[in-house]
């Protein structure tokens, strides 16, 4: 999705993320999505604010909670829903599901089920860009939980050492499944990154303008050869860690905390700012919301209409180069 500084477009994109997740939750409820879904709801300002500062040819790596990043980087909802429904028309031909959606043509180098694992890949991609004298930037998204993964801390060091065009974006939603960040990450998130020599900022991740401004500064620096930087976006996820058919939701946070979080809602916040700054035309906001709804309804229908992969293709795509009787099947006919 293209670079934009237009707040109205940010609003549209954030609504797309939120309503996409509402539909995904309904598809889990109805049993049409077989695996787990980690909803991005509440964190929309982070993905939209950062990706609006990126060009189409910049790349991101994403997380288990990745739908928002993929949509914000231009992922097509219909191919994402098709993936969630395990269809051949999905981004990964139904082989990946929610946690692995990728679209290389849009610089989406994949969501990842292993916390922190995308960060070194983003560094390697950034190095590849630089060796070809391309001014592209790599942005690994990760959560506060990843701040305790060795591979992420190693990646900070690599990025500084090689002065890579990388912008590390930490979505600090304050909680890793049920463990609080305060407890698990002594000393805080941004100071830890700063300790590696990364220019580090901490912004209100419920404020899309603040996120976009910080991302724009960091991306410009990276693109101009100024090296990597780190942005902590303080945010809240509204949902439990994940949802899956038949699974019991575990919410460890208090109702009062959740109430307070919703009062900082990033979408309502931007809508209120737009109202004060320019005023909404009669019906303008409803029209945008309904357009998004219509687009997503069509996307779900596209996904449902897709065919499931043929059982005969179970061994496909493991390797670019195959050999006789390789990969092996699990039993001889």
């Amino acid at each position: 999705m293209s670079e934009t500084g237009d707040p109205l477009e940010w609003y549209r994109r954030m609504q797309r993320l939120r309503r996409f997740e509402a539909r995904a939750a309904a598809l889990v409820e109805s049993g049409e999505i077989v695996g787990a879904v980690h909803e991005y709801t509440g964190e929309e300002a982070v993905a939209v604010g950062v990706c609006a500062a990126l060009r189409e040819d910049d790349i991101i790596t994403s997380t288990h909670r990745g739908h928002g990043h993929i949509l914000a980087k231009g992922g097509e909802p219909r191919r994402m829903f098709a993936e969630l429904l395990g269809r051949e028309s999905g981004y990964n031909r139904g082989r990946g599901g929610s946690m692995h959606i990728a679209d290389f043509s849009r610089g989406i180098y994949g969501a990842n089920g292993i916390v922190g694992a995308g960060a070194p890949m983003a560094c390697g991609a950034a190095h590849a860009f630089r060796t070809r004298a391309e001014d592209r930037v790599a942005v690994p998204f990760f959560g506060d939980g990843a701040m305790n993964q060795g591979v992420l801390l190693e990646s900070f060091n690599l990025a500084v050492l090689l002065s890579l065009p990388v912008v590390f974006v930490c979505e600090n939603n304050g909680i890793a499944i049920t463990s609080s960040t305060e407890e698990m990450t002594p000393g805080g998130v941004a100071p830890r990154a700063a300790g590696f020599g990364l220019p580090s900022r901490s912004v209100d991740g419920m404020d899309v303008r603040a996120v976009h401004e910080a991302a724009t500064t960091a991306v410009r620096r990276a693109r101009a050869g100024g090296g990597p930087s780190f942005i902590e976006c303080r945010t809240v996820r509204y949902s439990v860690h994940n949802i899956a058919a038949g699974a019991l939701p575990r919410e460890s946070r208090s109702e009062a905390f959740m109430e307070a979080a919703r009062r900082r809602d990033p979408i309502e916040r931007l809508a209120g700012e737009l109202d004060r700054e320019r005023g909404w035309r009669q019906g303008e906001r409803t029209e945008i919301d309904e357009n998004v709804e219509g687009e997503l309804d069509a996307a779900v229908e596209f996904a449902r209409a897709g065919r499931r992969p043929d059982a005969k293709t179970a061994l496909d795509f493991m390797y670019a180069a195959t050999y006789p009787d390789f990969p092996a099947r699990g039993w001889e006919p």
């Binding site: 180098y109 890949m121 390697g124 190095h127 860009f129 070809r132 790599a138 060795g150 190693e154 690599l158």
Partner: peptide, 21 residues
């Protein structure tokens, strides 16, 4: 030359490969 960070420099290679190296 890489620092003693086998996990990160292996991931770095994976990412560089995805980007065409």
């Amino acid at each position: 030359d890489m620092p003693i960070s086998e996990a990160a420099f292996t991931g770095f290679a994976n990412g560089a490969a995805m980007a065409g190296l």
